[in-house]
Design a protein around this nucleic acid. Structure first.
Lengths: 244, 244
DNA sequence: CATAGAATGTGTTTGAAGTACATAATGTAA
DNA sequence: TTACATTATGTACTTCAAACACATTCTATG
């Protein structure tokens, strides 16, 4: 006998009082990259229970909103960015994870260029924090962050998803610094170049770095096709992007 | 201004009426294996809207129940099995995916040995179905099934998770048949043996198949350590298992 | 009992991809 | 001009996956 498979008036009533009383939220782990460090966008929690702690950017899913739409809305509200890469990672639903009631949350991660969103420090208490050494987040947000970071680490060698974190043009050294920041390990320069170039993700621009205090490196960019597919949101958003 | 970060009486009221009215369910994609075919456990839907269609085994998450507990309960209720491997895959939350109201569902997959659960045909309308060629499931369950199958396919070469689908002792031929059923492709016998034995998952029992109409193959079993880790539920269940 | 047939068990070769490591070339700065 | 840092590229060794061939062991049949 499962609750979903009865079909009486009593059931309807019982179901709605007993079961349809959960809120669903989305939490966005928004990664950025600055100063050779991986960062994450956090907001000061204003719940008494988590006074002074930082939390991920999230919000409740609205009644007229698909789950998958919600993180795009959060991202648009918080960063002004749309058509971004966004991926569902995992759902967290411990009974007491939220002090205000039963809130089940689905975590998404995203990658945006910090240059495009330097939060005005007065606006609201949104700040970029280094991922490394981050502790004591509100709710179960440390667990969510760790889970999303692990997923990100698993995916960066498989898919060209990190290029939102750089400018359009970049040197291989900059790209390697980024990979090292995400993975938390050092990579061999020569092997890294080989692996990346073999993937065929990059286009050689035949340009050189400028204003660097050393020998300039060649500049590359991500292939246009791939930028559309992996950096600008999901397939349903593709049409709008392509038509621009 | 996000709903989660206000904190007034009005907010409380508005929040609870507007947001805390979703039900969360879990749906279990329970894979089995029989007759060299991958199967999935389905139940006849008794919702009018899906008359005659099959659906996955699921249930609403209870108020006093962690999300992660729910699929274990469903599995226990439906199959009598506990301490099984179970993994969260993805959460589905389209507005109208459930005709009875807003139900967000988290999908899990599991692997159990059909021998241990031959549903009594009278009991309730639970049956094993071949995964291949399955169409027209209730709700968005076809999408959920496809998503879980894809995840399963991605994982079977990385982790020793499929051994619940076989008896304790098995030949490499039987194991290969299983992999082929899951992946939907043919594998080369010699390369398969090499890949599997290199992983160090198996123990050679120094026994032979019996009652087979051809040359008997050697029998293997999964290493005990791995059976505990990957076939008998998650870490939180490990202690209970180990103490048996 | 001999032989054919079918499935098991164990290689080798080849090429692609990953790892470890060295050297040449180009720019800055003293 | 020289020292130094950084870019750019190459080579040998290993690991991994795919394609492929042959010998062994049991059953079945005449």
């Amino acid at each position: 006998m499962t609750a979903l498979h009865l079909k009486t008036a009593e059931f309807e009533k019982a179901t709605h009082s007993d079961f349809f009383n959960i809120a669903v939220s989305v939490d966005c782990v928004i990664f950025g990259y600055e100063d050779k460090k991986l960062k994450v966008l956090l907001i000061k929690s204003d719940l008494e229970e988590f006074d002074g702690l930082w939390s991920l950017l999230g919000d409740l899913v609205r009644p007229n909103e698909d789950l998958e739409e919600a993180p795009y809305r959060v991202l648009l509200d918080r960063t002004g960015l749309k058509d971004v890469f966004l991926q569902q990672v995992q759902t967290f639903g411990s009974i007491n994870r939220h002090p205000s009631g039963r809130v089940v949350t689905t975590a998404y991660y995203s990658l945006i260029n910090i240059i495009n969103h330097q939060p005005k420090s007065l606006e609201n208490e949104v700040h970029w924090h280094s991922v490394k050494g981050l502790e004591n987040l509100a709710f179960d947000h440390k667990l969510i962050l760790d889970t999303c970071l692990k997923r990100l680490q698993e995916q960066i060698m498989e898919h060209p998803i990190v290029f939102n974190l750089l400018g359009e043009k970049f040197s291989l050294r900059q790209l390697q610094d980024l990979y090292e920041a995400i993975l938390g390990i050092d990579l061999d320069r020569r092997n890294f170049r080989k692996r990346i170039t073999l993937k065929g993700w990059l286009v050689d621009l035949n340009e050189m770095e400028e204003d660097v205090p050393h020998r300039p490196g060649k500049l590359y960019k991500l292939r246009n096709q791939l930028r559309k597919e992996f950096c600008l949101g999901e397939k349903k958003h593709l049409e709008a992007v392509v038509s621009n």
